[in-house]
Computed example of a mutant assay.
Amino acid sequence: MTAFSPEIEVAIARTRDEVAALHAELTRYELVVWTGGNVSGRVPGAELFVIKPSGVLYDDLSPENQILCDLDGNVIPSTPGSDRSPSSDTAAHAYVYRNMPHVGGVVHTHSTYATAWAARGESIPCVITAMADEFGGDIPIGPFAIIGDESIGAGIVQTLSGHRSRAVLMQNHGVFTIGKNARDAVKAAVMTEDVARTVHIARQLGELLPIPQESIDSLYNRYQNVYGQNPAGELK
């Protein structure tokens, strides 16, 4: 059996609990169907991450059947869940963790409205203040890539490096989001679908009205650095 320090074992257990529980948010917000989609979380203090097993129904997910992997996407043997295959997107998640060390969580969905934008190969323009707040601008389109190897991960990193957005629409595929932790990445996935739906409906009604860049910058700074803090600068 693979041995880790007591501190890392605790971190792994906490990450398993969090990742397993967060999958319920994907179904709650109707971002996934059947067994599609996944959440992963980096294990703090270790070159490891936890990800959903492949082909398991959401109602059957538990901390014990989440899969522990190294940052090359290899399953750690003799650990809970290691008898199952990890998500088919594991290589993509691993590539992101290796190349974006600030990322602590990755989420993938095929949520309806956002995936419709991806099917058109079109970024979502920043035309509502909620997008400026959360994403700091447009949600970009990433390249088409085949599932199963690092190609999708490379496309995510290429598109989001130096970009404010925590979401990318991979062309003809769906949504990938990143975050400081798994919960943050799930929030980004929820917000991506919300703004994708709103902007789609707005475009059916008429011409979209752009937000000036200086206003986008101001809104993003306020939401990211001021919103939810008390006068001492501490989060409420």
Rank of each mutant, 00 (worst) to 15 (best):
20 A>Q: 14
53 P>Q: 02
45 G>N: 05
149 D>C: 06
136 G>A: 09
143 P>T: 03
129 T>G: 00
140 P>T: 13
125 P>I: 11
23 H>W: 04
71 L>P: 00
202 A>H: 04
192 T>D: 02
138 D>H: 06
115 T>K: 08
150 E>F: 02
53 P>Y: 02
44 P>Y: 10
24 A>G: 10
166 R>A: 05
123 S>N: 03
60 D>C: 01
29 Y>I: 03
147 I>C: 01
112 T>C: 07
203 R>L: 08
46 A>Y: 10
220 Y>V: 01
203 R>W: 06
24 A>D: 07
79 T>F: 03
25 E>F: 05
102 H>L: 11
11 A>K: 14
212 P>F: 08
167 A>E: 10
180 K>A: 13
126 C>R: 11
87 S>N: 02
82 S>W: 02
106 V>S: 03
93 H>Q: 12
154 A>I: 10
57 L>Q: 08
108 H>A: 03
188 A>M: 15
5 S>P: 06
196 A>W: 09
105 G>I: 06
103 V>G: 05
6 P>T: 15
168 V>L: 11
233 G>C: 01
210 P>G: 04
184 D>C: 12
218 S>L: 12
9 E>N: 15
97 Y>C: 04
144 F>S: 09
62 S>V: 00
206 G>I: 04
54 S>D: 02
129 T>K: 12
159 T>E: 15
229 Q>P: 00
78 S>W: 05
188 A>Q: 15
155 G>M: 11
161 S>L: 05
230 N>I: 06
175 V>T: 15
137 G>R: 13
56 V>Q: 04
28 R>V: 06
27 T>I: 12
90 T>N: 08
17 D>S: 14
225 N>G: 02
192 T>F: 01
19 V>E: 07
16 R>T: 06
54 S>F: 07
215 S>Y: 04
66 Q>G: 01
179 G>H: 02
89 D>T: 03
184 D>F: 12
81 G>I: 06
15 T>P: 03
130 A>I: 06
142 G>H: 09
171 Q>F: 10
223 Y>F: 15
85 S>G: 00
93 H>E: 13
179 G>I: 02
205 L>A: 00
146 I>K: 13
226 V>H: 05
70 D>K: 01
124 I>G: 09
57 L>N: 04
99 N>V: 09
213 Q>V: 05
68 L>I: 10
145 A>N: 08
64 E>Q: 03
37 G>H: 09
69 C>T: 07
180 K>T: 12
69 C>R: 01
50 V>M: 05
116 A>Y: 04
148 G>M: 08
7 E>H: 14
182 A>H: 09
132 A>R: 07
14 R>Q: 14
11 A>F: 01
78 S>V: 02
166 R>N: 11
215 S>L: 12
144 F>I: 11
113 Y>Q: 13
185 A>H: 13
213 Q>G: 01
82 S>F: 02
131 M>G: 03
109 T>Q: 04
134 E>A: 11
174 G>V: 10
154 A>M: 11
195 V>D: 15
143 P>R: 05
25 E>D: 04
26 L>P: 02
66 Q>H: 01
39 V>F: 03
110 H>D: 11
210 P>L: 03
212 P>W: 09
60 D>E: 10
110 H>V: 14
183 R>F: 13
209 L>N: 07
27 T>L: 08
171 Q>R: 15
70 D>H: 09
106 V>R: 10
232 A>W: 08
40 S>T: 13
122 E>N: 05
190 V>S: 07
221 N>S: 12
130 A>G: 07
91 A>H: 14
56 V>D: 01
